[in-house]
Amino acid sequence: MSSGTLLQRFEAGDIRALARIISFVENQEDGYRELLSRLYRKPRHAVRIGLTGPPGAGKSTLVDSASRKMLKAGNDVCVIAVDPSSPFTGGALLGDRVRFKEETQGGRHFFRSMASRGSSGGLSGATDNVALVLDSFGFDFVLIETVGVGQVELDIVNNCDLVAVVLVPESGDAVQTLKAGLTEIADIFVVNKADRSGADRIVTDLTSMLMLRSGQKTHPTVAKNPNIPVISTDAVHETNLDELVNYFDSLIADRKESGEFDVRRRRQVLRKVSRLLQHRFMTETLQRSSSKAEIDRAVDSILAGKDDPYSTADRLFSETNLAPQSC
């Protein structure tokens, strides 16, 4: 059949090779780290836009309509849609593709469903790596749809350059209870299903809530960006979809100019490195055969009121070769 390694075919623009490599990375098969090391060194330029919000708000429909607008403008656009895995069986029903109308015009398009596989922050643990694969393939935009379990899903902020929080006229209560978290993650609010009554009301509520908050110093991004736009859409009839896509473009352009785009990327990379470091340190500590038994004993002592978690962690650290020699 096709010749060459998967990576060679990937580099030549082969969609099957791309799909295969995504699975390889998602499944963390032997050699995936080496592959990622290669991809991190390749030129890339994709902008990652996340959509989060309660189930049924219309995220998939919005992703579909927005991506078709972006494609028509000549962009290469791909979608990662995450749905939950069952914590009991590990199985998942991935249904976001139902909203995707296959006929598209313009740039290249690609759609991939992902199961959350035990991760609870709204994405899968592998989403960031899969987005890197798609970025390296040459896409201009990666649109990422979260699970949408109705609570604030923080993973999206750590994986995207821009986050759209999608609400519907019925989300009034959610706005009340979630408002702190919502403003921290939203770069833009989308009130979808504006064809239904109550949309104006929630737009007004959100806008006044944002006005109030802009005076307070809360989160660095909020403090710098008092102007979080609120836009209402009807994803089915594509009302205001051009406006939404224009907002995406202008918000990204603004952030690139102000330097905030890079600040956010720096923060994400730093976070990733520290997570890997933590993981490495943990596995290394736990792999020393002595430490397992030692931790068990320490836990017993803590429960018996003879030791504490802080001293235990200090002691375990001092036993690694990372600790200063004098320890």
């Binding site: 895995s85 069952s86 069986t89 590990g90 199985g91 998942a92 029903l93 991935l94 249904g95 593709r97 139902v98 469903s113 199961a115």
Partner: peptide, 9 residues
Amino acid sequence: RDAGMEVIY
């Protein structure tokens, strides 16, 4: 799904 598979519908 309940048998542990990932099903794309």
